[in-house]
Amino acid sequence: MYKKFRLAWPFLLPGLAGLLIFYGIPFVGGIWYSVTDGKVQNAFVGLENYISVWNNTMFQMGLKNTMELSLICAPLLFLLSFVLAAGLHRIRPAGGFFRSGVLLPYLMPSSAILLIWLIWFDFRGPVNRLLVALGGTRVDWLVGPEARLPVILLFLWKNLGFCVVIFMSALQSIPESLYEYATLEGASFMKQTFRITLPLAIPSAFLVAILSFVNAFRIFKEVYFIAGAYPNEPLLYTLQNYMSNMYNQLSYQNVTTAAYIFAVIVFLLFGVLFLSQRSALKRLNGGD
């Protein structure tokens, strides 16, 4: 065991070093900035920044919008990717083309996707023309509160492929013999799904859930390209807008403070997800 552990180090070290240098140290180092006044002398101000940022209306607006967008986008992404992965898993090997194709949006640069999106959702664009053809009226998708829809769709379209791939690899790793045995025992499709597929796919599902939330929290490019630094529609102002604008004003103590507040929220959320995963696994495995 000890020998195995020793052998693992050379493989782990490069990754760990990168993680430590580019994430660990800046993350810890940034704490100092969040407790200083951000002026040239960088005086220590304790939790003053945390209080002022927490009470800042724009931070609150950004946080609220980010959480809302995440709570809409992440579950949608999770469900859609699972359904799509299960479907593609069913039609294999014929689904090879779709399996590869589903990753394409993920590989495309955001700006290119966004250009397509802007054309589609333009007031005179294909989406509105379709609406009119179906008897509806044109909607200003990119201006009012409706602008959230293109943002959500853009996020789903871009991130779906990656989550599908993770789900599919989990599904493919489940031994086929288990399903054959269950079928022989007379287990229904639903029973197979809940008793075999889900318990064995839960670790991957947890990963997908985490990634969905992380990506949803980071929705910015999409919003920025559509609505700019100060969106005309307040619903589109995210936490990333706040942090980017603060950076442009050289207010990096606010940037770091906002980041740590957000990190705490994210950790709490992931903690909840982790506990849910544990209890779900317990229920599915040990509940019998």
């Binding site: 800042n56 724009m58 005309n232 102002y237 603060m246």
Partner: peptide, 15 residues
């Protein structure tokens, strides 16, 4: 209105 809205956002951010 747009100027006011954006400026208010800029101002609120700085508070």
């Amino acid at each position: 209105n747009l100027m006011d809205q954006k400026m208010q956002m800029i101002r609120d951010e700085g508070k």
